[in-house]
Design a protein around this nucleic acid. Sequence first.
DNA 1: TGCATATCGAGAAACTTATATCGAGATGTT
DNA 2: AACATCTCGATATAAGTTTCTCGATATGCA
Lengths: 231, 231
Amino acid sequence: MQSDDAKTRRREIPEASLRRLPIYYRFLQKMAVDGVVRVSCADLARGLGLDPTQVRKDIEMTGIVGKPRFGYPLVHLIGWLENFLGWNRAKSAVLAGAGSLGSALLGYEKFRKHGMEIMAVFDIDGAKIGQRIHGKEVQPLGFLPDFVRRTHTLLGLIATPADAAQSVADLMVTGGIRAIWNFAPAHIRVPERIILQNEDLYHSLASLSFKLERQLGAPPFESEISYAKDH
Amino acid sequence: MQSDDAKTRRREIPEASLRRLPIYYRFLQKMAVDGVVRVSCADLARGLGLDPTQVRKDIEMTGIVGKPRFGYPLVHLIGWLENFLGWNRAKSAVLAGAGSLGSALLGYEKFRKHGMEIMAVFDIDGAKIGQRIHGKEVQPLGFLPDFVRRTHTLLGLIATPADAAQSVADLMVTGGIRAIWNFAPAHIRVPERIILQNEDLYHSLASLSFKLERQLGAPPFESEISYAKDH
DNA sequence: TGCATATCGAGAAACTTATATCGAGATGTT
DNA sequence: AACATCTCGATATAAGTTTCTCGATATGCA
Ligand SMILES: NC(=O)c1ccc[n+]([C@@H]2O[C@H](COP(=O)([O-])OP(=O)(O)OC[C@H]3O[C@@H](n4cnc5c(N)ncnc54)[C@H](O)[C@@H]3O)[C@@H](O)[C@H]2O)c1
Ligand SMILES: NC(=O)c1ccc[n+]([C@@H]2O[C@H](COP(=O)([O-])OP(=O)(O)OC[C@H]3O[C@@H](n4cnc5c(N)ncnc54)[C@H](O)[C@@H]3O)[C@@H](O)[C@H]2O)c1
């Protein structure tokens, strides 16, 4: 009841909840295939091995209203989530970097079913420019800003080497992109208004590696020996 | 000061901090190349555009001790982080799924510099088995558990279609794997003791898509119309 | 029709993470 | 040598997230 009105407040879904929605969404789709017609949060929690309260909170956050003792009509919940996430509305995207990762992304059919369509690919490698990858002709990187501007593309994917990521991001911003999905392991800086999602494998690797070592019992600390001589 | 002794307590680094360490690590390496010999948390924060307090907290969490008015010797901090994350100790891994993503992962040289080496690849596709990808011969999936058992492999990477992810994970667990890095968009379930890291693109896509739509002003709510007729 | 119960929805509490503040000590400077 | 300043390290506060609890209500069953 702060300064927000109800409509604004409703949208404040935690990032963590947001990232869990696809898990529910996929499970619901599997249920639909199996012919199920209604579902409760408890069903979801059981099926996925998650905490029922958390599932309820997450679903509730999307603003859907359910019926006590009933739950939600399955197809309605699926549609609701698609709409909530924007997965039923096509958003165009451009890709920078037509290497092995870029090609894989370009060939990833399922993105289209989730509201994202890669419309064009850009690279700086002269050998790649002009080639077709999954039906798209690779264009010179320099064409990117103008393409974005002309087509009002919202989303830019970066799959270049880390060194180039910042400059490519700048180029996208210049063109008027609204959001960037960065697959290069680089900490890039963009204006406040730009939505940035980093898909940095090393974040995960650090977490995984640390936990693994800890579980193995290797003490990664108390080797303070080398410090003294550094000074 | 609960039930933990100091040694245990020290290790309780927040997941969020852990995932930020690679950002600092890379920036430090860049500084080292530039010939810098000492660094403060404030330097890091400035260089990366992050909050200085957060950087200090994160670095402090690793247990390194700095000197007031000095900071940390650069190479010492780099080495400290490598040691903390286990990136200076080789861990072997196996990969399931030799498709486009699997191949990309297999060819990703830099993993080795971060403590991970993919020792073997497994697939079920008869056409792929026996082929060499980036120098590794693709083996039948059935050989995986035995390979893991014999070589005491710690880490398993899943790059199969989502349908197969759970069964592949089970196979890895059977073989005695300790941690799983899952690239398939599937919610897999593993025993408590297994460390699981999901690299699910749809988590990010959901977040990105939602934020983008919200910024564009499209109200993803208040279409409660269709609900009534479902009942 | 009335009752037991599953389920939602909301609020409270506990926990985690992020941000702000401050004292102490080391450094470089005058 | 004294002082101003920078930086760590620790503590405190705030914000965010998860977990717990409970009442209300629609449903299925007796
Ligand atoms: N290969 C993997 O498994 C993998 C996984 C996760 C992340 N990544 C990251 O994704 C990025 C790409 O990886 P990759 O394996 O596809 O590398 P790659 O070398 O196969 O492809 C990089 C492509 O980017 C192009 N490029 C270089 N500079 C460019 C620029 N300024 N603008 C546009 N294009 C440019 C190159 O010509 C090349 O085609 C890297 O940052 C890598 O760290 C790779
Ligand atoms: N292509 C991408 O850009 C991309 C990005 C992120 C995540 N992913 C995910 O990664 C996974 C692999 O994607 P991909 O593009 O490499 O697919 P792909 O079809 O190119 O490769 C899948 C491989 O897995 C093998 N496989 C199938 N069942 C198997 C099993 N039970 N055990 C072992 N191997 C099995 C197949 O033979 C094939 O070689 C998918 O789940 C996909 O959703 C793909």
